[in-house]
Simulated scan of single mutants.
Amino acid sequence: MGMREDELKAMIEAAFPGAAVTITDLAGDNDHYSAHVVSESFRGMSRVAQHKAVYAALGGRMGGELHALQLTTAVPS
């Protein structure tokens, strides 16, 4: 089934207003993506906590509509 790139980006942007979000479809199948998320809201959070926050924003779609997400997060410099 898969998830469209713009849908994935919109979900992350809704959870992290003002974030810079870059999505790349890794396999061309709407099922394997790379996401780079830069958000001020990550400041003070561990990398693990940042990733958990992004996965939470996806509302349980990991493992269903979205099979794989290669995730990198950062705070603005």
Rank of each mutant, 00 (worst) to 15 (best):
V38A: 06
P17R: 11
H36Y: 06
L26V: 13
G60I: 04
N30S: 15
A15D: 12
L71H: 00
A14Y: 10
Q70M: 02
D25Q: 14
A68E: 02
N30H: 14
A27L: 13
L69A: 02
D31V: 11
A10T: 12
D31I: 11
V38S: 07
T24W: 06
T22C: 12
M45R: 03
G59F: 04
A27M: 15
Q50C: 06
F42I: 02
G60W: 03
V21G: 14
K52R: 15
P17T: 11
Q70I: 00
L58T: 07
E40P: 05
G64M: 08
S34G: 14
L58Q: 10
G18E: 11
A35V: 07
A53Y: 03
F16E: 10
K9N: 08
K9S: 13
G64E: 11
E13M: 13
A53L: 06
H67N: 03
D29Q: 12
N30C: 13
E65T: 02
I23E: 10
L71I: 01
F42G: 01
I23K: 11
R47M: 00
V37P: 02
Y33L: 12
G59S: 08
Y33A: 08
K52I: 03
L58I: 09
E65G: 04
A10P: 13
A10D: 15
H36Q: 08
A10I: 09
L58R: 08
V37C: 05
L26A: 13
H51S: 05
Y55G: 03
E40D: 10
A56T: 06
L58A: 12
V38C: 09
V21K: 09
E40Y: 00
